[in-house]
Design a protein around this nucleic acid. Sequence first.
DNA 1: TGATATTGACTGACAAGTCAATCAAAATAA
DNA 2: TTATTTTGATTGACTTGTCAGTCAATATCA
Lengths: 217, 217
Amino acid sequence: MPKVATSAKVIHLPRKASRELRKQQLIDATIETLARKGYAALTLTDVAVEAGLSHGLVNFHFQSKEKLFSETLQFLATEYQQNWQDYLGRAAHSPAARIDALIRADLDPKICTAAKLRCWTAFWSESQSRPIYQKEYGGNDDAYNALLTDTCAELITTAGYAHEPLQVSRMIRALGDGVWQDLAFSETPCPRREALQTLHLGLASLFPRHFTVKGLV
Amino acid sequence: MPKVATSAKVIHLPRKASRELRKQQLIDATIETLARKGYAALTLTDVAVEAGLSHGLVNFHFQSKEKLFSETLQFLATEYQQNWQDYLGRAAHSPAARIDALIRADLDPKICTAAKLRCWTAFWSESQSRPIYQKEYGGNDDAYNALLTDTCAELITTAGYAHEPLQVSRMIRALGDGVWQDLAFSETPCPRREALQTLHLGLASLFPRHFTVKGLV
DNA sequence: TGATATTGACTGACAAGTCAATCAAAATAA
DNA sequence: TTATTTTGATTGACTTGTCAGTCAATATCA
């Protein structure tokens, strides 16, 4: 019978499933440890202890520390992209509703945890010296930006606002990144509800006929 | 005769001035190296090479790597605070002019370089495990936030806007942080002029009678 | 002014410690 | 048994911090 996983306990999983589950378990442990200790102070032993395993396993499943990080980033990037695409799929078709979906997606509890946000920052600040990380994520970002800009352009044109689409989408992205930073590093981060209000205040100011501070009209 | 300093050359300075100049030289080298290599990969030898000195000297002037980082952060924090206080001192007394001064200060070429912004991020993402860094900077941040919120409240009250001061100041800060992030990590960061426009677009949306995308009315 | 003594910034080799990666042996499942 | 996963001791590379010695800049003296 498969034993249930709890942090800092030895776990034995059915062999067939083991490989993928172990890798995910180690990736989860990497995210937690990275958030708690930062990039510089993190050792493979830390990750292994967090996962309740021995450090040799990390190099068994991933071939190197670098590859562990690379796959962790890839996991976060995929999860992020998947998330906003899901939100978009469930949103109404109007441009305002799609913009609302995109900013709500960024605050989804699944991806917007302090730990994961700190991981993003850790990867960004190390990305200068490790081009791998840029490749891992760069592409998705461009797709997201293009989509946001197009949707803003659509709203501006159809509803007759006088904004420049590129400027507006830049501002929305900056707002989102800024809110994320507060959630990640502020000693007293504002609750998710207030973070969403901050984003909606920006949208309400830009598009007063389509948004209020409470959200989509 | 004192020899002139150039990177990667041994230099002998007049002794009286040497201590402070060397420390600053090493702090500058730390900022450059931190931005180029990130926190994890940075060694004392890297910093020394960047400064054109031997690594033993780093521990001679600073007592440890930790202290080098701590003083580097302190330098950045002081420079940042000094800068916005200068801008505020030169600004007109109206609340709108003061808000404009604060956001222009954040984009001053002296403090808003890609290297320095990347350093801030590096320190933030390591701050979890090193409480020293929080202490070094936490206080100034509170003062800045309080000032911004008060100034927003003043503008809102005197000009009869219908915003909530705390929400507005949160949004302005988030915008500023988001723009900084773009300048620090985007592969194609927008020029400073466009970054300023993004911030002014936010202010123009919030306070249309006091700001346009071009700036203060 | 020129010669000598003193100071203290600076170097580079080295000791001590840390960590990623390896691998042989053990445990476990098929 | 055979195949696979897991462990943990070991290795080798690398980094920080130290320290004895060097040498330029200054102070002192003739």
